[in-house]
């Protein structure tokens, strides 16, 4: 097992090196650099002196060819330094740390809700397979699964911010906190946060929920056709015990892979939903960074995402060995 893990980690480091190299080149090849973008956005009344521009280019390391800059970046990374953000005048690690909380609030609560609902829903649908209620659930789940999150987000905004404007059900459109958040009591803060989070979390959750439920249902249907389920019935095991004990335990095996693959999404958030709801999370940070050509922040984000993806895959494989006694990495 340990030699397997070491092998995977070594391969993962190689992949990481390739990814960061490739992405760094890609980013630097994007037309426009941070200074040009900022010049475009600047007040037309102000001017930047040419020597200032040269000085800043030097400071940002934009005068070097990109592969030289990459190795400089890599060198700093080996010392644990992700560099300074071009736009926020703070360390990238700090910028990212600031945003993680907001994204985790969204993704974690959505993950917990979807698992809590998907497992009973999937099991119920399996048990009622072929009947009207299972059919209805399946069709509904299917529709939810196909509903694009940004469409749903807009529809919910229209409903709760426009149509219900002025009623008790009105929910805020943007942001994570209200205007006077700092002056609120603890309960007030919680309520404010809750109100702001309801719509984004709902939009975040329903797709995952639908996907997981359908996933569980499909796998359960596969598992209950197996010979060992018949063996359990021949022993005299009851219907529900077969579903929960014998079948679900086997369905866990593919479910574990999903959780592993979920890991990067936990921290990356969603570019589009965070954009719509003005949620100050990682997705929004990424979107802003790409528009401002903030290379260090982008590289930091992509590095984090790639590491998480690789770790998630490795974790999934290791969990596999725990859930499925047949798997061992000897």
């Amino acid at each position: 097992m340990s030699s397997y893990i070491i092998r995977r980690i070594l391969l993962g480091l190689l992949t990481l090196l390739l990814i960061t190299f490739f992405v760094y080149g890609l980013l630097r090849l994007m037309p426009g650099d941070p200074l040009l973008v900022r010049l475009e956005m600047m007040d037309p009344g102000k001017h930047m002196l040419p020597e200032d521009i040269t000085r800043m280019r030097e400071m940002y390391g934009l005068n070097d060819p990109w592969y030289i800059s990459y190795f400089k970046w890599l060198g700093k990374l080996l010392h644990g330094d992700l560099g300074e953000s071009f736009t926020q005048h703070a360390a990238v690690a700090h910028v990212i740390r600031e945003r993680i909380g907001a994204t985790l609030l969204l993704t974690l609560s959505s993950l917990i809700i979807s698992y809590l609902l998907a497992i009973p829903l999937g099991l119920y649908a399996t048990a009622r397979n072929g009947r009207w209620d299972e059919r209805t659930i399946s069709v509904l789940l299917y529709m939810l699964y196909s509903l694009p999150s940004f469409v749903a987000a807009l529809a919910l905004q229209v409903l709760f911010a426009v149509q219900l404007h002025g009623t008790a059900f009105e929910l805020p459109l943007f942001g994570m906190t209200g205007d006077h958040f700092n002056q609120m009591s603890f309960g007030g803060k919680f309520l404010d946060l809750f109100k702001h989070a309801v719509l984004p979390v709902a939009c975040f959750t329903y797709g995952t929920l639908a996907y997981y439920s359908r996933f569980i249902l499909a796998n359960m249907q596969e598992v209950i056709r197996q010979d060992y389920i018949r063996t359990a019935r021949a022993k005299g095991v009851g219907y529900w015990r077969i579903l929960f004990h014998h079948a679900f335990r086997n369905t866990m095996i593919p479910l574990v892979t999903l959780i592993g693959l979920e890991l990067p999404a936990l921290l990356s958030g969603s570019i589009i939903l965070e954009q719509i709801f003005g949620w100050p999370g990682m997705g929004k940070l990424f979107f802003e960074s790409i528009r401002m050509r903030d290379y260090p922040t982008l590289m930091g984000l992509i590095l984090m995402f790639s590491v998480l993806t690789l770790v998630g895959q490795l974790l999934a494989d290791i969990c596999y060995a725990f859930v499925d006694p047949r798997v061992s990495y000897e």
Binding site: Q226, D227, Y228, R230, T231, A232, A234, H246, R249, N250, I253, V323, D324, P325, R326
Partner: peptide, 12 residues
């Protein structure tokens, strides 16, 4: 049953 390979639950 006929198939001892598949007739036992692999996870128990």
């Amino acid at each position: 049953f006929q198939e001892p390979m598949t007739s036992l639950n692999p996870v128990f």
